[in-house]
Amino acid sequence: MICLFSKAQVKKYNYSEESRVYQQVADITISTNSDGIKKLSDLYSESPLIIAFVYTRCIGICNPFLAELSQNISLSGTDAKQHYKVLVLSFDTSDRVEDMNKLAARFNFENNKHWIFATTQQADILNKSVGFNPIWDGSRMQFDHEALLVGINQYGYVVKKLTGLRNPDDISLLLRELNGVFVASYQLPGNNSLLSCFTYNPATGERKISLGLLLLIAPFVFSLVIVFIMAIIMNRRLKNTAVPHHYAGT
């Protein structure tokens, strides 16, 4: 009944940013352009880590994604107190460290201590642990994938995920959250999320009171109904009995 009643307000959202958040990331082995072979935990135990998933044969989102990320980090107002490293990791197991070196050079990151370019043969394990699902398209010889940033804290937990090209404010929030600064967040309604208190329009930012909120009023209304029904029933009896003028304690 509840499901049927509230079906009307269900919207089709796909917030993959919510999956695997606060879960442990797989501690895979990576080959880096600067320090050779390392475990992922070697990196995140030093400082919070942002993983950007790309591959060098990519003719789609990867390059604009990196360019945008580079620019947004510089615009995000990060100060020296905020520690972070960006791990640009290829999820294509055919990529070599040399390919990643060329990619780093293209963005002038070869000598930037905040940026690490790496490959891994354990991409599937990592992808699964962070909820990243690239699909190989054999006809185009390309991966169909989202532009994904994953924030990992110093204990190896996924703290935040950002999908798509994001503005400097979003990047700033990611960096702050990774550095332990409180960032307000709230669970967004999913496909199965019924009876919300409010419906939210992401395009306009408009928030409207919704069916769920009526449930807050319902118990009080029902209790009054119960009391009034009892009072009506009893009122008939009271009409025929003496009204107490004072109470008689025993």
């Binding site: 499901c3 669970q187 199965n192 019924l194 919300s196 208190c197 769920g212 449930l215 807050l216």
Partner: peptide
Amino acid sequence: SKGTFTNDALLMKNL
């Protein structure tokens, strides 16, 4: 519901 029905966190906290 085995995952087919999810509650709203704000509503549940209010209740």
